[in-house]
Design a protein around this nucleic acid. Structure first.
Length: 473
DNA sequence: TGAAATGTTGGGGCG
DNA sequence: ACGCCCCAACATTTC
């Protein structure tokens, strides 16, 4: 056997446990070069929140690798050129990686694979971030599932829920020096202003943080998830694993395995893993999922181009406390509770009639968990343009949703502090509060907190009329 | 994983 | 005892 090194190309699989590419490379007994490339030629660059997370996740991965005797090499540039350079410098004769599924990355990976193979480099790719490949679950009549429930029923029979791979122990690190970037020089962290350091105390990027989040969630009781997941005022009601999953700091298989002792108890929670898998099926078969209506009848829909309204939604100044709390939670913490995502997205699309793609872009930029499949599929779900989508007439009421799922107003008070002294009765609808209640709470509508940007009833009727018209055309 | 309008039922107040 | 009205509570329909 030659002693030529193997390159392990890390992408969105920033972990050392249950990492097939890494484990397979370790098995070969050859020196390994662990490499992360900050690709400069991607179709859709990461958003600001994702870049911040990536920085810390890479720091964490480097430490994890160090603990098993390996170094993480960082390089910026076009993947093909970087890989060619590393091969030339190191004499590597193999490259292993874990697959990714968005069209741009898939295309690049396929080109690179063909090119390297033609030069007798051994290229191997693995499934690491999904429980089944998006092309494997098919209907009996052929084609892929476009409705979640039958998809998930069929998929569960085919999921790979085998034991997650352990952290490789016998890793032989490549010993010579290689060209290497300094992470700081990539400038992934925001400066002037440094909004990042305020966001991170809530989070711990990296595999250890992911494991901790999972353990906290399971301790709180996964059996309570079906109800508690709807309560944004309960900080332990959801797993908060989404950013960790998005960067591959934890694998869906590891999550599944942690629930294995009682799958029934965890069924609702695991169904959310199922939605993630389903989103990847949709993305795989619809590469333009983030920019093109899944249902083409929506192509004729005339969205409004109200920049002021868009900005008020983005900054949490719509005058609907529950919506504003959600948008401010996103801006301040890089995350928004799932129940609230449905409400804020519905508000942008249906109350303001703004194109779902504007919302998708905003979430892409501001969410730590921004994911090419989940983000696009979920926005289309709310718009009604997606597969198995929310029906056009489903319009979330921005204040009754708050009253139902944040009954004590704790969530609103946390993120919309200027309303915090309002009594529960009016916390979700300050425009109905009598003048005395407002003045007692120090609220001046239109000054300290905005009046509703649109009237709910009118906006609802307008949305129904517009959607109805589109269906008739 | 919706909201609102409309329909139905049944108890209680009351003449 | 009876009919009538009101209305809450629940069910069904519609968007």
């Amino acid at each position: 056997m030659t002693d030529n090194p193997i390159i392990i190309w890390f992408r969105r699989d920033l972990r050392i446990a249950d990492n097939p590419a890494l484990s397979e490379a370790a098995k070969m007994g050859k020196p390994v070069i662990c490499l992360y490339i900050y690709e400069s030629d991607v179709a859709r660059p990461l958003g600001g929140a994702s870049l911040l997370w990536l920085h810390h996740s890479l720091v964490s991965l480097a430490a994890d690798l160090k603990s098993i005797g390996a170094k993480l090499y960082l390089r910026k540039g076009e993947a093909r050129e970087v890989l060619n350079g590393v091969i030339k410098q190191s004499g590597a004769d193999s490259i292993y990686w874990n697959r990714r599924y968005d069209e741009d990355a898939r295309g690049r990976d396929a080109d690179i694979k063909a090119d390297l193979k033609s030069r007798s480099i051994d290229v191997k790719s693995y499934r690491a971030n999904l429980l089944s490949e998006p092309w494997t679950v098919e209907k009996k009549t052929g084609g892929y599932y476009k409705v979640f429930t039958p998809y998930w029923r069929a998929a569960q029979a085919e999921l790979d829920t085998s034991e997650p791979l352990p952290v490789p122990t016998a890793l032989k690190n490549y010993q010579s020096e290689l060209e290497h970037d300094n992470l700081e020089e990539w400038n992934l962290l925001p400066t002037s202003p440094d909004w990042g350091s305020k966001m991170l105390p809530d989070w711990s990027p990296g595999s250890a943080g992911a494991a901790q989040a999972l353990s906290n969630f399971l301790k709180a009781g996964v059996e309570d998830y079906p109800d508690e997941r709807n309560r944004p005022d309960n900080e332990t009601g959801t797993s908060r694993l989404s950013p960790h999953l998005a960067f591959g700091e934890i694998s869906p298989k590891q999550i599944w395995h942690s629930c294995k002792s009682d799958i029934t108890k965890a069924r609702k929670f695991l169904a959310e893993i199922g939605w993630r898998e389903f989103s990847y099926v949709l993305l795989f078969h619809n590469p333009k999922l983030a920019t093109q209506n899944f249902k083409s009848d929506f192509d004729s829909f005339e969205w409004t181009k109200d920049e002021t309204a868009l900005q008020r939604w983005q900054k949490g100044q719509t005058g609907y406390p529950f919506v504003d709390a959600g948008m401010r939670q996103l801006w301040q913490t890089g995350w928004q509770h799932n129940r609230v995502r449905m409400v804020t997205a519905s508000f942008l699309i249906k109350h303001l009639l703004i194109d779902w793609r504007r919302g998708e872009e905003w979430f892409w930029d501001t969410l730590f968990d921004a994911d090419p499949a989940s983000n696009a599929a979920s926005w289309q779900w709310v718009a009604g343009s997606g597969a198995d989508a929310s029906p056009y007439f489903r319009i979330f009421n921005p204040f009754s949703q708050g009253e139902k799922f944040d009954p004590n107003g704790d969530y609103v008070r946390k993120f919309v502090p200027e309303l915090s002294k309002l009594p529960n009765k009016y916390i979700h609808r300050p425009w109905e509060a009598p003048a005395s209640a407002l003045s007692d709470a120090g609220v001046k509508l239109g000054e300290t907190y905005p009046k509703p940007i649109v009237d709910h009833k009118e906006a609802r009727e307008r949305a129904l009329a517009n959607y109805k018209q589109m269906r008739q055309e």
